[in-house]
C-alpha cells in the first residue's frame, strides 16, 4: 500500500501524482489520509486515490506528537509500506517523528523519487546546493517528504473510483498547548511560477527602498519580487512567499536579477537553475558575481533606477 498525507490540500494533490505512479509500479493501491473533517475525499479520488481514510478526531490543531499517533494508526491499519508526506514544515517534523516510531528510514526534501533495482530511491540536495545525494531504502516502511511543485497534480479524472473509510484512532494527548496562532500576512506571490524575478538582499537600507526592485520588476512585466533569507526572516520586510534559497523557495525563472545580495551558497541553492542570472552589487569581490551571467559593480541605489529607465526606454 502506498499512502500520502499532507495538511495542505494542494500539496496532497501533488503527492497523489507521484503516489499513483509508485502504486502502479509496485502493483499496490493508493491511500490518501485526511485528518479531521472530510472536505476533499472526492477530489482526492478524482486525482488518483483508491482509498481515502478519514481519521476522525476532535483535534483541531496540528501537533506533531498527536498527528504522528494518528498516522501511525492509519499506516498499521492499512498495512502501508511506502509513505509520501509533504515537505512543508509540519510535514517534515511529522515524517521524522513517524520514522522514529516505526524505526524506519526517511528521506526529506526529495527532488525526485523513483524505483531503481526495485528499491525506492530518492534524490535530495546536500551540502547547501553543491551536490545531489541519491539515497536508497533498505527496509520498509519507507517515508519520503516532497516539497511543493516538484510534481504537478494529475488532471482530474471524475471516473476514477475509490472508497472512503472513516476511522477513529486513539491518540495519546500531547502535554504541549498551543497558545496562539498568528497568520502572517503574505502577498500571495508565487515565485516558483514566475518567469522573471527581481530579488533584494541586505544591501537595501530601508524597507521602503524595496520599491526600487518592484519598479524594475514592473517594467520587466515580471512583477515578481524575491528576497534573501534575512529580508524575510530577520527583518521581515517581505513575507515568506518571497524568500528564495535552500530554506525558502526554489525557483527557475528565465531571468533572475539579484540586487544587494552577497550570493552565499544557501541563496544560490534556490536560484541556480535560473535561465540568465544578473547580479548588482557594490562589492566587486561579492560571491554573487561567480554565479552570475552578467553583473554590474555599483551602488544599487544608482543602478536600479537607471536600469529601470533604460529598459522602459528600450522596450517601450
Amino acid at each position: 500500500m502506498v499512502l500520502v498525507y499532507s495538511d495542505d490540500h494542494k500539496l496532497t494533490l501533488e503527492l497523489l501524482n507521484k503516489g499513483s505512479e509508485l502504486a502502479r509500479e509496485l502493483n499496490k493501491s493508493l491511500t490518501a489520509v485526511i485528518i479531521g473533517k472530510d472536505e476533499f475525499s472526492k477530489d482526492y479520488i478524482a486525482h488518483g486515490a483508491d482509498k481515502v481514510v478519514i481519521a476522525e478526531t476532535e483535534l483541531n490543531q496540528f501537533k506533531a506528537e498527536e498527528y504522528t499517533d494518528i498516522l501511525e494508526g492509519v499506516i498499521k491499519e492499512t498495512g502501508s509500506e511506502t509513505i509520501l508526506i509533504s515537505s512543508n514544515k509540519n510535514g517534515k517534523e511529522l515524517a521524522s517523528r513517524l520514522a522514529a516510531k516505526f524505526k524506519a528510514g526517511c528521506i526529506t526534501d526529495c527532488t525526485n523519487v523513483y524505483l531503481k533495482d526495485k528499491k525506492l530511491t530518492a534524490e535530495r540536495i546536500v551540502y547547501s546546493g553543491n551536490a545531489v545525494a541519491v539515497e536508497q531504502f533498505n527496509t520498509i516502511p519507507q517515508i519520503v517528504t516532497i516539497p511543493s511543485k516538484v510534481f504537478d497534480p494529475l488532471p482530474k479524472d471524475e471516473k476514477h473510483k475509490g472508497e472512503v473509510i472513516k476511522k477513529k484512532i486513539d491518540v495519546q494527548k500531547s502535554s504541549s498547548k498551543i497558545l496562539k496562532v498568528q497568520e502572517m500576512k503574505t502577498e500571495g506571490v508565487n515565485v516558483e511560477d514566475a518567469e522573471i524575478i527581481v530579488s533584494c538582499g541586505r544591501g537595501f537600507k530601508n524597507k521602503e527602498d524595496i520599491k526600487l526592485v518592484s519598479e524594475l520588476a514592473d517594467v520587466l512585466k515580471g512583477r515578481t519580487v524575491g528576497c534573501s533569507r534575512p529580508i524575510a526572516a530577520d527583518l521581515k520586510w517581505l513575507s515568506e512567499d518571497h524568500w528564495i534559497g535552500l530554506s525558502g523557495h526554489k525557483v527557475k525563472p528565465k531571468l533572475y536579477i539579484a540586487a544587494g545580495i552577497s550570493g552565499q551558497i544557501q541563496h544560490i541553492a534556490g536560484m541556480r537553475d535560473s535561465g540568465v542570472i544578473v547580479a548588482i552589487n557594490k562589492d566587486p569581490e561579492a560571491l554573487i558575481f561567480k554565479s552570475a551571467d552578467y553583473g554590474i559593480v555599483g551602488d544599487l541605489y544608482e543602478v536600479l533606477p537607471k536600469l529601470t529607465d533604460a529598459i522602459k526606454t528600450k522596450m517601450g
Binding site: N138, I277, D293, V297
Partner: peptide, 25 residues
C-alpha cells in the same frame, strides 16, 4: 543498522558567463 544507503553523490557545477561591467554606471 542503517535503513538508508547513499548510492551516489553528484556534484552540480555552476557554469555561468561571468560578464561583469564595472566602470561607468
Amino acid at each position: 543498522e542503517p535503513k538508508i544507503t547513499t548510492v551516489d553523490i553528484k556534484g552540480v557545477p555552476m557554469e555561468r558567463k561571468n560578464v561583469i561591467y564595472q566602470n561607468d554606471i
